[in-house]
């Protein structure tokens, strides 16, 4: 093994790991938030960047079997997707407000995709060093790591819909957000709680092609899960009437979100709803522009 090979692989691994680490920021969804999850994903990131950076060096030496090793690694990354999916699906059974299958699949998909991204950054960095010298390697690493950040940005609900507050009204036993019926609650004490704590949000698609995104049931579940996850929930295991709900108005296609967050701050509710990612499987059939 020559020094040139060592530097090419080392540079690739370094930039691959930096990319993985920067993509592993704990965000408001607080996932993954545990040290063990960190170590698992960093270990996989290390393997991905090692495989990625070895490939161009091996290919340059005429060792074409490197390609089959890349394929082998790709199957391992599908395992990451399964691991994340199984873990989150297991947790669903004890969630008062579940994430929903679409959200889980979306999260699992992102974890898999990020490893491919890391592998690509490592491979291109090491190839750039091999062809363009030390500076080529460093510049390629910086540009690619920044590029990975651009790719990381999700489209959010705020991009596809106008998000505004809607008045929660009680008419007899009926609970409405503006004119959209949410549910029927009979008891006065529950209705008192609702009139005191409930916050309504109305979503209107910015363009017709985005209506499908808002109407996707998985997407709607993801919205309530995220808001409740950030702002807390008044609902307990025995107060199903306080369960957050999302209903649509069949006539106008508007979506009404009804929830009773612990933190009674309607501005923050709007902020969180706007920042909920648009799930990739809710986009299907939504047309161009996402």
């Amino acid at each position: 093994m020559t020094t040139r090979q060592v530097i090419a692989i080392g540079l690739g691994v370094l930039w691959g790991l930096i990319t993985r680490l920067s993509l592993l920021r704990v965000d408001y969804r607080a996932y993954p938030s545990y040290p063990h999850a960190y170590s698992t994903h960093l270990a996989f990131g290390f393997i991905a960047s090692l495989m990625g950076s070895v490939a161009p060096v091996a290919l340059a030496e005429g060792k074409f079997e490197a390609v089959s090793f890349l394929l082998l690694t790709a199957t391992q990354f599908q395992e990451i997707r399964r691991m994340e999916r199984d873990k989150l699906a297991d947790l669903e059974t004890i969630e008062l407000v579940p994430r929903g299958a679409n959200y889980i699949e979306g999260i699992a998909e992102v974890f898999e995709a990020r490893n491919y991204l890391v592998m690509l950054v490592a491979a291109l960095t090491s190839a750039a060093f091999w062809l363009g010298g030390p500076w080529g390697g460093v510049i390629a690493g910086v540009v690619l790591a920044l590029g990975a950040h651009v790719l990381r940005r999700d489209t959010t609900i705020g991009d596809v819909a106008k998000v505004r507050l809607g008045e929660v009204r009680l008419e007899g036993p009926g609970v409405y957000v503006e004119d959209i019926f949410i549910m029927n609650v009979a008891l006065p004490q529950l209705r008192d709680g609702i009139s005191k704590w409930a916050i309504g949000v109305v979503l209107e698609a910015r363009e017709d092609q985005f209506i499908n995104v808002l109407h996707n049931v998985g997407q709607r579940q993801a919205i309530v899960h995220d808001v409740i996850h950030v702002l807390g929930n008044r609902q307990d295991v025995d107060t199903a009437a306080f369960q957050p709900m999302v209903r649509k108005d069949a006539e106008s296609g508007r979506i009404a979100v009804y929830l009773l967050p612990m933190e009674q701050d309607s501005e923050r509710v709007l902020q969180v709803v706007s920042q909920v990612p648009v799930l990739s499987n809710a986009k299907s059939g939504a047309g161009q522009g996402l």
Partner: peptide, 10 residues
């Protein structure tokens, strides 16, 4: 409703 974890509807 409390006992069976349900919601009363009118």
């Amino acid at each position: 409703a409390d006992v069976v974890n349900g919601v009363p509807h009118d």
